[in-house]
């Protein structure tokens, strides 16, 4: 409609002096204007692109990779076995032979630390994943359905919260026998309710937003609304909750060990080692508390900064 056609009827004699480009269609000139200059990115690609820009989050990712790799190869790097006790090498400070020193039974703290990493990281990550799966589905359904279904589902959660936790754990130990699997079940059997409550609270809030109503008006199915509208917008809270679940699970495991219900000797998780190392604050054998406590804290720090970065990267509202 913006054709630069000669329309001036007062100067017909100038008609043949009109430059040629006047007769080129405007669309022809701007053919490139509406082409997409930025590469088209899927949701995941865009999230990854934004995550890469966040230096702190990437540092967290690399720390975690390092910890996971060390959990696998760490115990083989040192010549000392995880179970070997030595009465002549009790409570030695860190040295060229024992990199992290030895404990009161002469066991090598370096080897034990990386064995502990296997247990602690496995317990933490498994607990977080299971909590995530159950919690998101349960909380999502309760929050979205609302009404009677929501109240019944919430009452079930209250019951799980109210049960004396130790009774449940002891019962699981009796039924399943002590072991890593039992500990993970014990941590998740009531652990997922926190995630479920967070998701439910968020969904309750978001499901009344205009964009959800718009989707509904266009006839979107429940599953599509949950997947496309509700989940991406609760992702922030979910990921923060997951990064809190990992430390919570690692601590809960150490609390169970503290009560004699956790990992059994000679193997030890970081929590157990830190717990065993507590009295050494007074005896001066600081390395026995420092190394497990340091790696617990490092893991938590990495999970948390990565979680923060992921939250920003995954949030569709913060998309640029």
């Amino acid at each position: 409609m913006n054709l630069p056609v000669q329309t001036d009827e007062r100067q017909p004699e100038q008609h043949n002096q009109v430059p040629d480009e006047w007769f080129v269609l405007n669309q022809e000139k701007n053919r490139e204007a509406d082409s997409v200059k930025r590469p088209s990115l899927s949701y995941t690609q865009d999230a990854w692109r934004r995550l890469k820009k966040n230096k702190l989050a990437m540092a967290g990712l690399f720390i975690l990779l390092f910890l996971f790799v060390m959990a696998v190869i760490g115990p083989f790097l040192s010549p000392h076995s995880v179970v070997r006790q030595s009465l002549t090498e009790q409570n030695l400070p860190p040295s060229a032979d024992h990199w992290f020193g030895t404990d009161e039974l002469g066991r090598d703290v370096f080897t034990r630390t990386w064995y502990g990493a296997r247990i602690s990281l496995f317990v933490g990550v498994m607990a977080a994943l299971i909590d995530f799966l159950i919690g998101v589905i349960y909380g999502g359904v309760a929050g979205y359905k609302g009404g009677r279904i929501d109240s019944i589902m919430m009452r079930i959660i209250e019951v799980l919260y109210g049960l004396p936790y130790l009774l449940v754990v002891i019962l699981l130990m009796v039924l399943m026998g002590p072991g890593l699997g039992t500990i993970i079940v014990a941590l998740t059997v009531t652990g997922w309710v926190g995630m479920a409550r967070i998701v439910r609270g968020q969904v309750l809030q978001i499901k009344n937003y205009e964009y959800v109503l718009a989707s509904k008006t266009f006839g979107a199915k429940t599953f599509r609304i949950i997947r496309k509208n509700l989940l991406p917008n609760t992702m922030g809270a979910i990921i923060v909750q997951m990064t809190l679940t990992v430390p919570a699970a690692i601590f809960a495991e150490s609390f169970l060990s503290f009560l004699g219900l956790g990992i059994q000797a000679p193997f030890a998780s970081w929590g157990v080692m830190a717990n065993d190392g507590l009295p050494t604050i007074l005896s001066g054998h600081w390395w026995r508390l420092f190394f497990p406590a340091f790696f617990i804290s490092l893991t938590m720090y990495a999970f948390n900064v990565l979680g923060d970065g992921l939250q920003d990267a995954l949030d569709p509202k913060l998309r640029r």
Binding site: L244, L289, I296, Y301, N304
Partner: peptide, 17 residues
């Protein structure tokens, strides 16, 4: 947030001690 992460990172029995 570092303060907060530190708070979550240290088990309370270690912090108390």
């Amino acid at each position: 947030m570092s303060l907060a992460v530190l708070g979550i990172s240290i088990p309370n029995f270690i912090l108390a001690t």
